[in-house]
Amino acid sequence: MKHIRTTRRAFMGHLGLVAGMGALAYTAPGVLSIRPATAAVTTRPAGAKPVVSVFMDMPWVDMSGRAEPYIPPRGTAVPARLTLAEDFGNYQYYHV
């Protein structure tokens, strides 16, 4: 195995770049896209786009993207916020 030396700042900066690129690929209005950045334990098929869904009044995140997404009624959605690179260390499991 080849080891690469890096600093935490450089590593987080790289993640931030990836997060920023992901943010550009925002989905349809009202549909939230969530991508785990470092949640290695979360299994997600390659290319799948996680969605927030609702089943029997319970919201849940389908990492496989196969569930029907929840689209809040117009005017009631929490405003989506692009995650900035400097935020990424704090929201390491999210970006929108």
Binding site: L32, V54, Y70, P72, T76, A77, Y91, Y93, Y94
Partner: peptide, 15 residues
């Protein structure tokens, strides 16, 4: 860092 819920489902299901 201020609190933010980027993963919130929004609508009625937001915290």
């Amino acid at each position: 860092m201020a609190v933010n819920f980027p993963g919130s489902p929004g609508g009625f299901y937001a915290p």
